[in-house]
């Protein structure tokens, strides 16, 4: 249990790992926008090429990357099937038909595009964010990016503090849950028998002590934080200052240009346009 990894972070030394997390966040947003605006084959080809580039730059092994896609395989297959079989094209001959299903060229293309869109979005944002940035650096970057919003009285600092404390306590509380489970097992509790309702009920003797302990921890932590002069985000400084390097700016400019390129592909009818 002591070895659980938080998130999917893959420790390595790569250009992507070194990048300013704030820039990575902005690029990830641009990336998602690009994936949605893409309408024709050339655009998607560019998008796919950028995914490949990101994977190479991140130095994360291909196996790990593909492993992260397991969860979306079902959604992917479903959307592809729906697009292939349920897209109707007015005034065109179906390529193939069976019972109520008719397959048109448009359907094939829209299935291909939607698959590329989902895949590139997931792989792209994973490469930029979860694989190459620690969760704590991410919350930190989010806080710094959103910090102008505090003038609108939005609790930006408090939110990121909550996030980082949650991240800090995940392993501690998991360890505790295991201890409580072991203690309840020693008293004859079973968690793996019976139907669903019975199993859910058998979790109650774990959840109640766990909640009680989490509240106790929260109070103690609050006291300890008060003793360490914590009084919210006002007047607080940070040890690590995030510094943008020239490289980060260049990457950002290139990414904006790439987005513009992908979007402008929509205006030239190159390849198939949906």
């Amino acid at each position: 249990m002591k070895n659980i990894a938080l998130g999917q972070y893959y420790p390595a030394r790569s250009p992507l790992h070194r990048m300013d997390p704030r820039i990575k966040l902005i690029i990830a947003v641009l990336y998602i926008v690009a994936a949605f605006l893409c309408k024709n084959l050339l655009g998607f080809a560019l998008l796919a090429a950028s995914v490949v580039l990101l994977v190479i730059l991140s130095r994360v092994p291909l196996k790990t990357v593909l492993g992260s896609l397991k969860m979306v395989v079902f959604i992917l297959v479903l959307t592809v099937a729906i697009n292939i079989f349920l897209t109707k094209e007015e005034g065109a001959e179906p390529l193939w038909s069976f019972w109520i299903f008719e397959v048109y060229t448009k359907g094939l293309y829209s299935a291909l595009f939607i698959a590329l869109r989902i895949l590139s979005m997931i792989i792209g944002t994973c490469m930029l964010l979860t694989y190459t940035t620690t969760p704590i650096a991410l919350t930190d970057a989010l806080e710094r990016l959103l910090s102008p919003l505090r003038h609108l009285k939005l609790p930006v600092h408090e939110f990121s503090m909550m996030m980082s404390i949650a991240l800090r306590f995940i392993p501690t509380i998991m360890e505790e849950a295991e201890k409580i489970m072991a203690a309840q097992k020693a008293r004859g509790a079973g968690f793996t028998e019976g139907n669903l309702i019975k199993r859910i009920k058998s979790l109650i003797p774990i959840l109640i002590p766990l909640f009680a302990s989490v509240f106790r921890r929260a109070f103690e932590l609050a006291t300890a934080m008060t003793c360490r002069c914590y009084r919210g985000g006002d007047g607080r400084t940070r040890m690590t200052t995030m510094r943008m390097h020239a490289m980060d700016i260049i990457v950002l400019i290139v990414s904006v240009a790439a987005l513009a390129g992908i979007v402008s592909c929509n205006y030239w009818n190159i390849g198939y346009t949906l």
Binding site: T134, R217, A224
Partner: peptide, 11 residues
Amino acid sequence: FQNPDNQLVAT
């Protein structure tokens, strides 16, 4: 304090 786990804030 007594419990080291409940005093540490950062990861």
